[in-house]
Design a protein around this nucleic acid. Structure first.
Ligand SMILES: [Mn+2]
Ligand SMILES: [Mn+2]
Ligand SMILES: [Zn+2]
Ligand SMILES: [Zn+2]
Lengths: 139, 139
DNA sequence: TTTCTTCTTTAGAAACATTCTAATCTATTG
DNA sequence: CAATAGATTAGAATGTTTCTAAAGAAGAAA
C-alpha cells in the first residue's frame, strides 16, 4: 500500500464503498501511511489514542473487519488469544517472535511450499499459511 | 500413541510425573485410545460428560496443558478464538476445514517446506507450522 | 493402617478479547 | 435543508481461558 497522501487514503476508502469519516481516515493513516504493518486491535487503539484520535474499540474492530472484507487487510492467525491484522495482502508468510509477539514478513520468494498434497474430496484451497515460530537463542 | 490398555495409559501418566487420577485416566482414554485426534477443550469436556465422567472444565484445561508440557500433546493454532490440541506430536502439518472447524493431518512426507530463509538475528526455530485452509467447493 | 505431605480437582469468580445492542451522530444525496 | 443510509459509541453480553482458595485423593513414611 504505502500511501501517504490523505486524498489517496480517502479514495481508497471510497473505493471500498465506505464513508471517509474522521475515525476511518485516522485509522487508515495509522495503518497504511508508513508501509507494511502487523497490528492487533488493542495496539491500534492505543496508537489512535496517542495520536489524539478518540475512537472506541468497537470502531477499531468494525473498521479492521471492514478493511479486511474490502481486501485492504488480511487477518493472520498466530495466537489463539489475539487477532493480528496485516497491511500486506500479497502472498507471503511469517516469522512469529514468541517472546515479543511480533510478526515479521517472510518474502514469498524466500520460502517454497512444494508438493501440496491432494486436497480432501470436494474442497478447494482458501489459503496456505506458514508460520515460522522463532525464539531468542538462550545462551 | 494409539494405546488401549488402561495399564499402558497409567504408565504413560506416571512417566509424565503425574498421578493417575480417575479424571486423568478417563481423559487420557478419550484422547489416546482411538488413534490420533484434534480436539478442543470444550469438545473434550462434552465427550467426558457423555462418557459419564464428571470432570470440570478447569480440570480439562489443567490436564490438556500438563499433557502438552509432558510432550504427549501439542497445541495447534488455527483459530483466534479456540485452542486445538493434537495427539499426534510427530512432525506434520494440517488441513483446516473452515466450515466445520475440523483439523486433518497432512503427512509430513506429503508436504515440503523448502528453503526456509535465514532467520532473524539471534533467533532459532521453535516450530514451522503449515496450515492449508480449505473450504467446500461452492457449486 | 494411620499419618503426613503433595498433588489434584472443583465451583465460582475473574480476566480478556471480541461482538452485540440500541441510541446518537454524520455523511451523502436530492 | 430534509431525508436516508451508514457510522460511531458506551456499555452490556459473550465465549474462552485462567485464577483462587477450599476440599478431596494419591503416594510415602512410619
Ligand atoms: Mn474476526
Ligand atoms: Mn494455552
Ligand atoms: Zn505479513
Ligand atoms: Zn495433527
Amino acid at each position: 500500500m504505502m500511501q501517504q497522501d490523505p486524498l489517496e487514503l480517502e479514495k481508497m476508502i471510497r473505493d471500498a464503498n465506505l464513508r471517509p469519516t474522521k475515525q476511518r481516515i485516522a485509522l487508515a493513516e495509522l495503518l497504511f501511511a508508513d508501509g507494511n504493518r502487523h497490528i492487533t486491535a488493542e495496539r491500534l487503539h492505543g496508537e489512535a489514542m496517542e495520536a489524539g484520535v478518540t475512537v472506541s474499540l468497537a470502531t477499531i474492530y468494525n473498521n479492521l473487519h471492514q478493511f479486511t472484507s474490502a481486501g485492504l487487510l488480511r487477518e493472520v492467525v498466530v495466537d489463539s488469544s489475539r487477532s493480528y491484522f496485516d497491511t500486506n495482502v500479497s502472498a507471503h508468510h511469517h516469522f512469529f517472535h514468541e517472546e515479543t509477539g511480533m510478526l515479521e514478513d517472510i518474502p514469498d520468494s524466500a520460502l517454497n511450499v512444494d508438493s501440496i498434497p491432494s486436497l480432501p474430496e470436494g474442497t478447494e484451497i482458501s489459503s496456505v499459511d506458514v508460520i515460522v515460530r522463532v525464539s531468542n537463542i538462550r545462551s
